[in-house]
């Protein structure tokens, strides 16, 4: 893919899909993000690593404006997320505009967050039909394709509680894909799963990486990170303390905190 490909002649490389600059966020007196800069190239996979409380999830949630940053900005596909710049000020966008921006960014949660009162099929077609105005038969056909892709075709009429955790998470991935997002965010997608179910979910994410989907993944699965990531980022105390190729960050970390953490989880 285009990730890392140097552009000949032209002054700059291709504008990254995601640009994070000077991002700061506090909850009360606790500073969770303390000036984060990050680029994610289109079609590339970035993994966010770090101890709990280091700000990984908050950074991820700022990318689709589930959290409002205190300072700095996130840009996705050339648009500032959640704000419009005018006369030296960033004005927060009205709800409708934020909603529109979010349709470009899919998100998969640690606790799956499938809608328990809707069937698998209804979970998948709700947003495409309601938000993008896809005709229902088309949405249903698309849902079938996506379920086949995550290995769950035929489970359309099941309710989420009838599925295992791994199956629920695969449905959640299919649900995010149904909106045809340009970017997928994963917030510890396998942390709530029994060990024997982790593999099936990682397999689906691996297939997406091979297919060229742009993704930012918060995970503690170091082996998986090394395998799929184009870029690994290590956060500690709300700052990026280490970033680069997975082999460098994971195997030869310069930062002492990163070295201690990685040797503990490996």
């Amino acid at each position: 893919m285009s990730a890392g490909t140097p552009q000949a002649g032209d002054a700059g490389a291709i504008r990254p899909l995601v640009r994070v600059r000077g991002l700061k966020k506090s909850f009360g007196s606790h500073r969770v993000l303390d000036g984060v800069d990050l680029d994610v190239a289109e079609g590339s996979v970035t993994v966010l690593l770090g101890p709990s409380g280091s700000g990984k999830s908050t950074l991820l949630r700022c990318v689709n404006h589930l959290e409002r940053p205190d300072a700095g900005f996130v840009e996705v596909a050339g648009e500032i997320v959640g704000y419009r710049y005018r006369d030296g000020r960033l004005h927060e966008l009205p709800g409708r505009e934020i909603t529109r921006q979010r349709t470009q960014v899919g998100m998969v949660f640690q606790q799956f967050n499938l809608f328990p009162h809707l069937t698998v099929l209804e979970n998948l077609i709700e947003a495409p039909v309601a938000v993008r105005g896809v005709p229902k038969p088309d949405a249903v056909a698309k849902a079938g394709e996506l379920l086949a892709r995550v290995g769950l075709d035929g489970r359309q009429s099941a309710y989420p509680r009838e599925l295992s955790g791994g199956q629920q998470q695969r449905v959640a991935i299919a649900r995010a894909l149904a909106m045809e997002p340009r970017l997928l965010l994963f917030d510890e997608p396998t942390s709530a799963l029994d060990p024997e179910l982790v593999g099936e979910v990682l397999g689906v994410i691996r297939d997406l990486a091979v297919g060229g989907m742009s993704m930012i993944i918060v995970t503690h699965e170091i082996g998986f990170a090394r395998e799929v990531a184009d870029q690994a980022v290590f956060l500690d105390g709300g700052r990026i303390v280490e970033s680069g190729a997975p082999a460098d960050v994971l195997d030869r970390p310069g930062n002492e905190r990163a070295r201690a953490f990685l040797s503990a989880v490996l």
Binding site: G106, N113, E126, A130, M179
Partner: peptide, 23 residues
């Protein structure tokens, strides 16, 4: 209703009214 339900719906780009009625 768990907060995660609203977040998941927001992340899908559903509007406020729709989230309240459907989710």
């Amino acid at each position: 209703v768990p907060a995660g339900q609203v977040e998941a719906a927001q992340a899908l780009g559903l509007g406020r009214g729709r989230i309240f009625r459907r989710i």
